[in-house]
């Protein structure tokens, strides 16, 4: 399935001359346009694993180092952005291709080792966040990218069914700390709300706009932290209530990873409701 995967990965890049050909091959409803790409990948759902897996909620950090470490463990040089979704899918395709053919014992052993590496990579660095990301894409994406995301999801499902996956939570999730206590440092608390691996849910600019509309307060233009602070300053209780609503509806994801995200999200929702009540 590596050919298909590489094609899917190309669409994580800005549309180019090849996009039309690839969109047609994948039966997408239309060719992705530059504005669509910007709206999804540059404004709402950054295609970097570290944004969703690092406790900082930003690109880089220990999460990116862990992914780079996987490359090093294979004796390979990590690319400049090892956690970019396109790179991850490309790397996975290469892992799938690398398993040698042959029926002799050494080839079999080598193939088994590559299979284990492939399963570990999928579990640790792809399944740990991509299903949550795809669920969000389904909510806010354009029809073309939603269709692309569904094909990617179908591929993910087929891989999960085909591979023997590790047990226990991926290291990224095991290492994630809880939300910052809300009383001590408001800035830190807001920062942790914007860290998916800590809060359990992805908070996009579209979500913030929706919270603002529901709460009847103005959304100030700016990056998410700035916008969220402005909402809280205007009406803390309504904003927290709106956020709690979002966190209370986690997507239905399978397996222990799904359980992790659901539990985190619901726990955050409860906390936000308590804080909203206190604010009133």
């Amino acid at each position: 399935m590596s050919e298909l995967l590489r094609c899917l990965a190309v669409l994580v890049e800005p549309p180019g001359a090849e996009t039309e050909r690839i969109a047609a091959l994948l039966d997408l409803p239309d060719t992705p346009q530059g504005w669509e790409y910007n709206a999804i990948f540059l404004e709402q759902l950054y295609p970097y694993a570290s944004v969703y897996l690092d406790v900082s909620g930003m690109m880089g950090g220990e999460a990116r180092d862990r992914i780079a470490g996987f490359w090093r463990a294979l004796g390979e040089i990590p690319p400049p952005e090892p956690d970019h979704l396109g790179t991850l899918l490309g790397a996975y395709a290469s892992l799938a291709d690398a398993a040698p053919d042959g029926v002799e014992a050494p080839a079999k052993r080598a193939r088994a080792a590559w299979q284990r590496a492939r399963a570990a990579f999928l579990w640790e660095h792809v399944l740990s966040w991509l299903p949550l990301w795809l669920a969000k894409l389904e909510q806010i994406g354009s029809p073309t990218y939603v269709a692309w995301g569904r094909t990617l999801g179908a591929w993910l499902t087929s891989e999960v069914a085909a591979l023997r996956l590790p047990e226990g939570l991926p290291a990224h999730l095991q290492a994630a700390s809880d939300l910052e206590p809300p009383g001590d440092d408001a800035e830190a608390f807001i920062g942790s709300l914007l860290s998916p691996v800590r809060a359990g849910f992805i908070l996009t600019p579209t979500d913030l706009a929706s919270v603002a509309a529901t709460a009847g307060v103005a959304l100030r233009a700016g990056e998410r932290r700035y916008a969220l602070k402005a909402l809280l300053a205007q009406d803390a209780a309504a904003t927290l209530e709106g956020l709690a609503e979002l966190a209370a509806a986690p997507p239905a994801l399978a397996g222990p990873i799904g359980v992790y995200w659901r539990q985190r999200s619901l726990r955050t929702s409860r906390l936000l409701r308590e804080l909203a009540a206190a604010a009133r």
């Binding site: 590489r6 990965a9 190309v10 890049e13 396109g86 790179t87 490309g90």
Partner: peptide, 10 residues
Amino acid sequence: TFYPGPSRVH
């Protein structure tokens, strides 16, 4: 080239 452009894939 099948995957032209600044692709991380190739």
